[in-house]
Design a protein around this nucleic acid. Structure first.
Length: 703
DNA sequence: AGCACGCCGACT
DNA sequence: GTCGGCGTGCTC
């Protein structure tokens, strides 16, 4: 220990020996050179630097440790991670020595390092950016507590002459997984990749809590993986999903469960991180960054609802948790398990090319009925058509009813009074709202909708429809007097409701879980959701609807209250696979993701031209196509006043490594020249933007 | 980022 | 001759 950080705790003597298994990592063993990855956001520093191993650190230094090293001069220090040791350096100059060991714990395992490197390379980014997601900030207190606890546990078990695995005997209390889950776990541990469509409806745990049937399935599979002596990582979009899984795991008596999520304090996160780092199998559950958690003997990565947009990392290099999981499974030989109520287009693609295998047993699915389309959209006075009102009243006799709406708040929108299509502004195509009663105007450009005529059927009657959640609540309170009307949306989060009758109005994705399940689930605003100008609108709708339908009781019903067309048909008939199939074929024909990959290149015109030139000459570009560059609208947040252009590169999956390498090369060259170009600028001019790369951006083809 | 290196124009 | 402008490139 370079700084004697542990000298003030009683176990310091034991810790000098490798008492904690998490300290057990490769030592220099006489080798004089340490390879260090610097903690820097600069792309031109994203490679290993050689440093001398100083005499005084030689016994304590380990691969994976965070260190401080002199950089640029002996005074300035940078942080980094020890990646490996070598006997000699190929660097021409004289090596500086490592200055300090930050923590005795080797925070970066070789597996996570290789993952970060591969994931960053694939996304045209820096490994350091991935490591920032993977490794939480160090908390000295938490670390000392952890090391002390592990040391005492080790000495205790040594006194018991216990075998190392006997600590896991307590796991015998865990409920044995059902045969299906055990079989899935066996296949995962053998390295298989599986996709599962999950059973609808909540189920009651022995603890009395209700969780989605999917959570029970994932918990059982994770426990079975752990019983096979391997770690499982379970990635779930949000804390509500994580809570359900955690409840299920607890109810089944699972031990060694570690949770990592964004709501934790840094101390909690670091504590969880250290537990994940222990050389002992764990069940690690968490949000998108859990995919980077260290895990001893990783057996499988389980991912719930990978189509949820929160699994897309918003920080550079914008790597989706699904992609990171694919890379990690490939590297480590771990199994991969995608479970959802509605499959994503990406998993469907993986299934079609035979990379993941479908679980064939058909899931139980809520009965879905479709409202009668012959009823004119203005044939009802309240928020919902009469038959929907009937469904709601019916359900309220025995329990809660869920009503899913498109948007929060009050926002109203108009539809054609004759055909029911969403009314669109004749000038800009935007939605038409009612500012004040009777005066309709476009919500985007403000144009008055006086002489409006429907583009579809020529009708000219505008009908106000599809109000937001708060407005819907007010209307329901009048329409269903005497019943509780509860609101659940982003501003009013509500994780659970009880089994008593109530109307629960929720925005898509914010639906609470009901004890025993909802008697009825009513889906409003389908035409509005489908009109979102988004390449993934259909896929997203199926996910929102299917996830809502899954909240119904097994004998409950789901009513699609409006809308039509192929996506609604797919949902109503339950033939999501067929729709997704044809959707994927369409995207193949259009060369849209995920049939192909895309990368956007943004920057000054000359910068982007140089980057595109780095892709090679047109004849070497087989399977690679460049769209643009086109000017980035000044209103685009990326522009920030500077005049920028953006090109879109799309390419076959097989060209990914090559494209990423070449674009990344251009980015590094651009960054190297950036400082000099900046000096050349007249004062007052905007700071020149760095060239920006973004791979697999979902929204790249959206308006 | 920040700093050294090096290659042309103006000066003692 | 040499001082110093700033473009260029490197950082173990």
């Amino acid at each position: 220990m370079s700084s004697g950080e542990l000298s003030d705790i009683p176990e310091a003597a034991e810790l000098a020996a490798p008492a904690c298994s998490c300290l057990d990592a490769e030592a220099p063993n006489g080798r004089a050179v340490a390879e260090v990855l610097l903690d820097s956001a600069l792309p031109q520093l994203d490679h290993l630097f050689d440093y001398a191993v100083p005499e005084e650190l030689a016994t304590d230094l380990r691969v994976g440790q965070r260190v401080r090293v002199p950089f640029r001069n002996q005074q300035r220090k940078a942080f980094g991670y020890v990646i490996g040791f070598t006997a000699s350096s190929s660097f021409g100059g004289e090596l500086s020595p490592i200055a300090d060991i930050v923590s005795p714990v080797p925070q970066l395992t070789p597996e996570v390092w290789h993952l970060a490197r591969a994931v960053a390379d694939r996304a045209g980014g820096s490994a350091g950016d991935i490591l920032r997601l993977a490794i939480p900030g160090r908390q000295v207190r938490v670390e000392k507590q952890h090391l002390a606890a592990v040391a005492t546990a080790n000495t205790a078990s040594a006194a018991d002459t216990a075998t190392p695995s006997s600590g896991e005997a307590a796991e015998g209390h865990a409920e044995l997984p059902d045969a299906d889950s055990a079989e899935i776990a066996d296949r995962l541990v053998a390295g298989e990749r599986l996709a599962l469509t999950a059973t609808h409806s909540p189920e009651r745990l022995a603890t009395g809590e209700w969780v989605g049937a999917w959570a029970i399935r994932l918990a059982r599979v994770a426990i079975a993986v752990k019983q096979a002596g391997r770690s499982a990582i379970v990635v779930l979009p949000d804390y509500r999903d994580q809570d359900q899984l955690q409840s299920a795991l607890a109810a089944f008596g699972a031990e060694s469960v570690v949770r990592v999520d964004a709501r934790q304090s840094n101390a909690e996160r670091y504590g969880s991180f250290l537990r994940a780092l222990d050389r002992e199998p764990r069940i690690i559950i968490g949000n998108r960054s859990a995919v980077y958690a260290p895990a001893y003997e990783l057996g499988a990565i389980l991912m719930w609802d990978d189509g949820d947009p929160v699994l897309a990392e918003p920080l550079a290099p914008y790597v989706h948790a699904r992609d990171a999981a694919l890379v990690r499974a490939e590297q480590s030989g771990a199994g991969l398990f995608f479970a959802a109520h509605a499959r994503s287009a990406e998993v469907e693609r993986l299934s079609l090319i035979g990379y993941v295998h479908d679980q064939v047993n058909p899931p139980r699915r809520t009965r879905v009925i479709h409202a009668d389309q012959s009823i004119a959209p203005d044939a009802f006075a309240g928020r919902v058509p009469d038959f929907a009102a009937k469904t709601i009243r019916e359900g309220l006799r025995t329990g809660p009813v869920l009503v899913q709406v498109a948007t929060p708040g009050y926002a109203p929108v108009s539809v054609c009074g004759d055909c029911g299509d969403l009314a669109r502004c004749t000038a800009c195509g935007g939605p038409i709202g009612f500012r004040t009663a009777g005066t309709a105007a476009c919500r985007w450009c403000g144009q008055h909708a006086g002489g409006w005529a429907c583009a579809g059927c020529g009708g000219n009657r505008l009908v106000e429809r599809g109000m937001g959640s708060a407005r819907t609540v007010e209307q329901f309170e009048r329409q269903f007097r005497g019943f509780r009307v509860l609101l659940a949306d982003g501003d009013n989060p509500r994780e659970r409701v009880d089994a008593r009758p109530a109307i629960v109005v929720a925005t898509r994705g914010a639906e609470p879980l009901a004890a025993g399940g909802y008697r009825a689930v009513v889906l409003l605003d389908a035409e509005r959701l489908l009109s979102l100008e988004n390449l993934r609108a259909g896929e997203d709708c199926l996910r929102w609807w299917e996830n809502a339908a899954a909240l119904a009781a097994p004998d409950g019903v789901c009513l699609m209250a409006s809308g039509g067309g192929p996506v609604v048909q797919a949902f109503v008939t339950g033939r999501l696979d067929e729709w997704l199939h044809s959707e994927l074929r369409d995207r193949q024909a259009l060369r849209y993701p995920p049939a192909v990959r895309v990368a956007s290149v943004t920057g000054g015109s000359a910068q982007v031209d140089r980057a595109l030139a780095a892709l090679g000459s047109p004849d070497t570009l087989a399977g690679v196509e460049v769209l643009g560059p086109t000017p980035v609208a000044a209103s685009d947040p990326a522009a920030r006043g500077a005049k920028l252009v953006r090109a879109i590169v799309r390419f076959e999956y097989g060209r990914g490594n090559d494209v990423a390498k070449r674009l990344r090369g251009a980015l590094v060259a651009d960054a190297a020249g950036a400082s000099s170009r900046q000096k050349g600028r007249a004062p007052g001019r905007a700071v020149p933007e760095a060239l920006r790369l973004r791979f697999d951006d979902r929204g790249v083809f959206d308006g």
